[in-house]
C-alpha cells in the first residue's frame, strides 16, 4: 500500500482548497482556487492511478547464483539474492549463474554459465527464480544443458516459463545483452517475444500475442504470420532495396548469426 498515504494527503489538500474557496471575503482564496484545482485534481487522480498500479506488480526474488542483466528489454543488473519489481504481464529476462567451482578454495575460480533468456507471464504475485546447487564443473555443464531453473510463487508452486540460451560467439567480455536480446527476439525460440512488425497488425489479429506456456512454441513460427508469408516478404523487400540497403541488410544478418 505504498500509494495510500500520498493519496490521503492529496485528498486532504483538495478538501482544504475547497474550504478556502468558501471562506467569505478571502480574495487570496479566490485567486488560489482555480490554479489549485487545476493542479490538485489531476494529481489526485494520478496518485490514485499510481496507487492502483503499485498493487499491480510482480516481485521476483533471485536465488543465490542467479544474476539478471536485462529486464524486459532494459539493461538492468540485479545481483544474486536480490529482488526485482516488475509490472504485471509478460516478463522477459536475461540471466546467468556464477558459482565458485573447484575442489578447494585455492583451486576455486568463478565460473559463469550460459546466458539464458527466460519468458513467463506473471501478475500480482511474488516469485522466486533459482538455479540448482552448483558445486562442480559437471553440475554447471548439466545446468547449461538442462536449463533447469526453478520459478515458483510464494506457495512454492512452479510457474511455467520458456527458456533458451542467448548464444554469443567470439569475444565473451563486454557483452551487449540488450542488443543480443533484440536479435534473439527475431528468432523462433520459444523464449523469444514475437516482434510486432509495423503494418502487419491485421495479419496478426487472430493470435493472442506471446504465449509463454510450458511446451509452447514461439508465435512468430506458429502464428498467423506463417513462414511462407515471411519468405515472400523478405524476397519482396530485398528486391525493393537499393545496393546500400542490401549491403546493410547482409551485414545485419551476418552480425545476427
Amino acid at each position: 500500500m505504498p500509494g495510500l498515504l500520498p493519496a490521503f494527503l492529496q485528498i486532504l489538500t483538495f478538501r482544504l482548497s475547497l474550504n478556502a474557496k468558501r471562506a467569505p471575503g478571502s480574495y487570496e482564496s479566490e485567486l488560489l482556487e482555480y490554479p489549485l484545482k487545476a493542479i490538485v485534481a489531476p494529481s489526485f487522480f494520478l496518485v490514485l492511478f499510481f496507487s492502483a498500479q503499485a498493487l499491480a506488480e510482480v516481485t521476483l526474488a533471485l536465488g543465490p547464483c542467479v544474476q539478471a542483466h536485462v529486464v524486459n528489454s532494459e539493461e538492468k543488473t540485479a545481483l544474486p539474492d536480490s529482488s526485482l519489481t516488475l509490472t504485471n504481464g509478460t516478463q522477459q529476462l536475461v540471466v546467468d549463474c556464477t558459482a565458485m567451482l573447484g575442489r578447494s578454495s585455492d583451486d576455486a575460480f568463478p565460473k559463469t554459465g550460459e546466458a539464458f533468456v527466460l519468458l513467463f507471464e506473471a501478475a500480482d504475485t511474488e516469485l522466486t527464480l533459482s538455479a540448482p546447487r552448483i558445486q562442480t564443473r559437471r553440475q554447471m555443464t548439466a545446468f547449461n544443458r538442462e536449463k533447469d531453473f526453478r520459478l515458483t510463487n510464494a506457495a512454492g508452486t512452479p510457474v511455467n516459463y520458456h527458456v533458451d540460451v542467448l548464444e554469443k560467439e567470439g569475444f565473451q567480455v563486454f557483452r551487449d545483452y540488450p542488443g543480443e536480446l533484440e536479435a534473439f527476439n527475431r528468432t523462433s525460440s520459444p523464449a523469444a517475444i514475437r516482434m510486432q512488425l509495423p503494418g502487419l497488425a491485421d495479419a496478426d489479429t487472430d493470435t493472442e500475442g506471446p504465449s509463454p506456456k510450458a511446451g509452447g512454441q514461439s508465435a512468430l513460427g506458429q502464428g498467423a504470420l506463417g513462414q511462407e508469408t515471411v519468405r515472400q516478404m523478405l524476397h519482396y523487400w530485398y528486391l525493393q532495396a537499393d545496393k546500400q540497403t542490401r549491403k546493410e541488410w547482409k551485414n545485419w544478418i551476418q552480425s545476427s548469426n
Binding site: C65, D106, P110, T112, E169, V173
Partner: peptide, 22 residues
C-alpha cells in the same frame, strides 16, 4: 582442500566470466 567445497558453493555474484573468447 575438500572442506572448502561447501564454502565454495557460496555462489559468486560477479559479472566476471572467465571465458574470454569462444
Amino acid at each position: 582442500i575438500l572442506l572448502a567445497v561447501a564454502v565454495s558453493s557460496i555462489a559468486a555474484g560477479s559479472a566476471s566470466a572467465a571465458t574470454i573468447y569462444e
